[in-house]
């Protein structure tokens, strides 16, 4: 209620020049750019992988089981005699699509809950917070196993279950940012103008926390990828013979025991590269969005 100037007014415009870089990645440094490039490549492979793959996933010949690299098969064969490189290229799609579904669903859910909490405050906020806290207590994988038991094992089921498990985490982080933004006077000015609440949120509030939304989404992508791979590994996600990196880690298991770890290693390495890139980028985006939040 104080009416005093908050600080000595700063009349001069004094802004640091923007650090060079691509528009969306400004301020994330060289690491951010390299990570973004790796991710772009991964997404590209997910899209056009089937066109690049020299062999299909079903061209299996048990006589080639665990055969090493040859002239036509750069990475050799899996335990079931399929071409390893082709399998990696084909598996990229579900390995990347899965986490994407998780992220989009969890973000939509989390953003909606966070905005409603921040906007209405009071009892609505309290009730939503309690619900989120209860959901928060469920490990994502446990929820996915339950969902697989009830609805049958598939990538979609696992992804939706994970999204529901992650949403409270997103909602909690974004709620704080949304409350901070809600309290700024430009929002009050728009309310006084007569704009509807949802229009103010859609056009002004959400765009102003979009930096944090993107950063959180990126970090979540990494988690989702690892969790989905784990779920596929225990047989409750993507079902073989559909190619998937998580499934490949599981199927390569027998090879590991027999001294032919190529399949598990290659698929695992793909997962690790994408997850590390996504996490590094996410952390940098997050730091940037917090830096710009004043």
């Amino acid at each position: 209620m104080s009416a005093m100037p908050a600080t000595t007014p700063i009349e001069t415009v004094d802004r640091e020049p923007s650090v060079r870089g691509l528009p969306g990645l400004r301020g994330t440094g060289i690491v951010g750019h390299v990570c973004a490039a790796i991710l772009a490549l991964a997404v590209l492979i997910a899209i056009v992988g089937p066109l690049l793959a020299p062999y299909s996933a079903t061209e299996i010949s048990l006589s080639n089981s665990f055969v090493g690299p040859t002239g036509d098969h750069y990475l050799g064969f899996t335990g079931q005699g399929a071409d390893l490189l082709s399998l990696l290229l084909l598996g990229a799609r579900s390995s990347i699509l899965g986490p994407l579904i998780v992220v989009v669903a969890a973000m939509v859910l989390g953003v909606v809950v966070a905005i409603i909490s921040a906007w209405r405050g009071g009892i609505v906020d309290q009730v939503l917070s309690v619900i989120m806290d209860v959901l928060f207590a469920f490990p994502g994988i446990l929820l996915a196993i339950l969902a697989a038991a009830v609805f049958g094992a598939s990538l979609q089921t696992a992804a939706i279950a994970l999204a529901i498990a992650y949403a409270p985490y997103i909602a909690r982080v974004l709620r704080a940012a949304a409350i901070r933004e809600r309290s700024r006077e430009y929002i009050a000015a728009l309310e006084v103008q007569g704009f509807s609440a949802w229009l103010i949120c859609l056009r002004h509030l959400v765009p102003n926390i979009s930096g944090l939304i993107v950063a959180q989404g990126t970090i979540l992508f990494g988690y989702a990828m690892v969790d989905l791979a784990a779920i596929s590994y225990i047989g409750l996600g993507v079902q073989p013979p559909q190619p998937d990196w998580g499934v490949m880690v599981a199927q390569g298991q027998s090879g590991v025991l027999q001294g032919y770890p190529a399949e598990s290693l290659a698929a695992g390495l793909c997962i690790i590269i994408v997850v590390v890139a996504v996490n590094l980028l996410g952390e940098r985006l997050n730091a940037r969005s917090q830096g710009s939040a004043r």
Binding site: T8, P9, I10, E11, T12, D14
Partner: peptide, 8 residues
């Protein structure tokens, strides 16, 4: 002085 004058 006013803001930016250097008094602080």
């Amino acid at each position: 002085g006013e803001s930016g004058s250097g008094k602080s």
